[in-house]
Amino acid sequence: MKKMKAAYKRSAHRKNKQITKSPPDHYTAMAQVHKIDNVFDDMDNLWAEIAQRHQTQQQTRFLKTQLKPNERVLDAACGTGRHTIALYKEGFNVVGLDISHKLLKIAKSQGALLLVRGDLRALPFKSEIFSAIISVDNSFGYLASKDEDQKSVFETRRVLQKGGRFLLDVFNRERLVYKYAGKQASARLFEYPSFQLEQVRAVSDNGEWLCDHWAITEYSGKKRVFSHKAHLYTFKELEEMLSKAEFVVDSVYGDYEKQPFKQDSKRLIVVSIAK
């Protein structure tokens, strides 16, 4: 059994070497200049507990309807590897990518084998190497500007094969703007196995940013405070970004049950095809 595990790890390492490469010099320079203030990295194991509460099984069932068996999939901004691991168990050849060394370490400890540390704006992969790329559960929009988000979409297209699918799953801006914009910030308390989290959520007056402030009290008595924000996009804005990168929208959903997207849908899930 030990020999079989060792052989599999060597195989996984070879697969990583086959698809990765150092990005071009201008991408390398860009990655060095633009540092991401990664709140999720600072939260490390706490974020792992939060992530486990998310709808991983439901999301995986949905992803299986969008992916083809045995195709090479990139899980962009994979975090603790929830979807990377779930899709691997379903037989997909999936690679997890994240900028956070700590979150990738957690993903590895939970069973993910094909993991790469990298920047969405400078993906360390050969061109046209993946047949599908997924960005699930609000992993998109945390870069410093919309121009930076657009760069990540261009990079997604570069490493995706012609005819490949890009699945982008984000908050529905219209629903959140209606719920929060111009109103007093909303506070909620969440209980996790080792801590409590008080979340204060607001949307900027122009509706472009979702802002979260988290006050965490661990049951050991330790307290931590984190703040982060993410860009909010309308479907039209995402469609324009995708079009600039030579994608064409194939389908749009409002949840993981494949319901049609509407103004009050919880999710905005856009599936596009690389031209």
Rank of each mutant, 00 (worst) to 15 (best):
S251W: 01
Q110W: 00
R72E: 08
D255R: 05
G111D: 03
I269D: 08
L238Y: 10
S109Q: 08
S22Y: 13
G81Q: 01
K223E: 15
I99C: 11
S243P: 00
T65N: 06
Y27P: 01
D37L: 06
K21P: 00
L123M: 15
W47I: 11
R201P: 00
S272C: 07
S227A: 13
Y253P: 07
I36N: 05
Q263G: 01
D42H: 00
S152T: 05
Q58Y: 07
E191F: 06
T20E: 10
D255L: 05
K3F: 10
V177T: 11
I99H: 12
P260E: 14
F171C: 07
K183H: 08
L97T: 12
Q59Y: 05
F154V: 08
F140A: 00
K146D: 09
S220F: 09
G81E: 02
K179R: 01
A122V: 09
D41L: 09
S145A: 11
L167A: 10
K183D: 05
I36M: 07
I36K: 06
Q32H: 13
Y88E: 00
R121Y: 02
M1G: 12
L168P: 03
Q57N: 01
E237D: 11
R201L: 02
N70C: 03
K262W: 00
Y142K: 02
G207A: 13
A144W: 09
K275F: 14
K151G: 05
L115A: 05
H231A: 14
S152I: 03
S131F: 11
P23Q: 13
R158Q: 11
M1Y: 11
A132Q: 03
E239D: 15
C211D: 15
D98C: 07
H83V: 00
A215S: 15
E246F: 13
W209L: 15
S272D: 02
A112F: 04
L238W: 09
R82D: 08
I133Q: 15
F130S: 06
E174L: 07
L97C: 13
I50Y: 00
V73L: 07
M241W: 04
S251F: 00
D255E: 08
A185Y: 08
F261D: 07
T156V: 14
L114I: 08
L242F: 08
G182P: 10
W209N: 11
G182M: 12
I99P: 04
Q161Y: 03
E71R: 00
F195W: 12
F130C: 04
A12T: 14
D250I: 08
P24I: 14
R82H: 05
V73Q: 06
H54S: 04
T217G: 11
E239P: 06
D212P: 02
F195Q: 08
H213I: 01
F166E: 03
W209R: 15
V270Q: 09
K126M: 02
T65P: 04
G254T: 10
